[in-house]
């Protein structure tokens, strides 16, 4: 914990990141709309002010990277420095450097703290490129991603591939209170290989709120400092010993403030985690 905020280290570098990050898929893809860009800037400001650091994006997310760059520029140099994470997402290995350079420009000329190969697209070729970039200091950590429970077998194969193993710092996949396939293989493997885990789709794109709609918070929620379902769902994820951070995405300042509430207070232990699953599944 740093200043009351819960952080976890990236094992390979020892760098600590707050356990609640920010996803930008859909939510920051607002195009050139000045009104919506300003609304997202307010969301970004709340995230950084409340202690968030890791911002995750991708060239696949339309204008999201440009909107992040717009927001960071507008917030100015006095705003806390984010942990900038994006992805390379092109079937052309030779096109990877150009796409990553474009991302750097869109984010406002930033060196990325983390560059991930999106959905394992041409992962071997892109990791070869990224190996050089890391050696040149153009990126600090490397990772791979998947989502929606896709291709876990292949993902695990990459996590154990002799070429990839020494290069990888992080892995990103879907993990939430109802989507727990990762507990079987990917999370134990990440722990064994000392890889940081970024959990995407923590609310299953908002669908989990439909699952708990109208249901009162269980009594145990107060014991772990949760005032709403968002915090319950986030604390469930980041309390898994192998998970480094979760990346909820939102378009609203009030929802961001709720999410960031999961960055403080006690975390559930293993027994409570089992009860959380049972209680939420029974709703």
């Amino acid at each position: 914990m740093a200043g009351g905020l819960v952080t976890k280290p990236i094992p390979n570098s020892g760098e600590a990141v707050p356990v609640i990050g920010m996803g930008t898929s859909r939510t920051f893809n607002v195009g050139s709309s000045p009104r919506l860009r300003d609304v997202r800037t307010a969301v970004l400001k709340t995230f950084l002010q409340m202690g968030g650091r890791l911002i995750d994006s991708s060239p696949m997310y339309g204008s999201s990277e440009a909107v992040i760059g717009y927001g960071l520029t507008k917030l100015g140099a006095d705003a806390p420095k984010p942990f900038a994470a994006t992805k390379v997402w092109t079937p052309s290995v030779s096109g990877g450097p150009e796409q990553m350079a474009d991302s750097e420009r869109l984010w406002g000329g930033r060196t990325f703290d983390l560059m991930q190969v999106h959905n394992l697209v041409e992962w071997r070729g892109h990791l070869e490129t990224l190996q050089r970039w890391k050696a040149e200091g153009r990126v600090r950590h490397l990772g791979i991603t998947t989502s929606h429970g896709w291709r876990h077998e292949e993902f695990a194969d990459v996590m154990t591939d002799p070429f990839a193993v020494p290069l990888l710092d992080t892995v990103q996949f879907t993990y939430n209170i109802l989507d727990r396939e990762a507990e079987a293989r990917l999370l134990p493997l990440a722990a064994e290989r000392k890889l940081a885990v970024i959990a995407n789709r923590p609310f299953r794109r908002g669908q989990l709120f439909g699952h708990v709609a109208g249901k009162p918070l269980p009594g145990w929620a107060a014991n772990i400092g949760c005032a709403n379902w968002a915090q319950v769902m986030l604390k469930f994820i980041v309390s898994h010993p192998a998970v480094t951070c979760a990346i909820p995405a939102t378009t609203r300042v009030d929802h961001m403030a709720q999410n960031m509430g999961a960055l403080t207070g006690p975390m559930p232990d293993a027994a409570l985690r089992r009860r959380m699953v049972a209680d939420v599944e029974s709703l």
């Binding site: 859909r26 939510t27 893809n29 607002v30 195009g31 919506l36 339309g62 989502s147 929606h148 378009t251």
Partner: peptide
């Protein structure tokens, strides 16, 4: 049904954005 034709994975914008785009257009 929520991931009709796999579109949920591919549609990476919100209705709000489309409405805003159409309004500006």
């Amino acid at each position: 049904m929520n991931d009709l034709l796999g579109l949920e994975r591919m549609v990476l914008f919100t209705p709000e954005v489309l409405v805003d785009l159409h309004g500006r257009l």
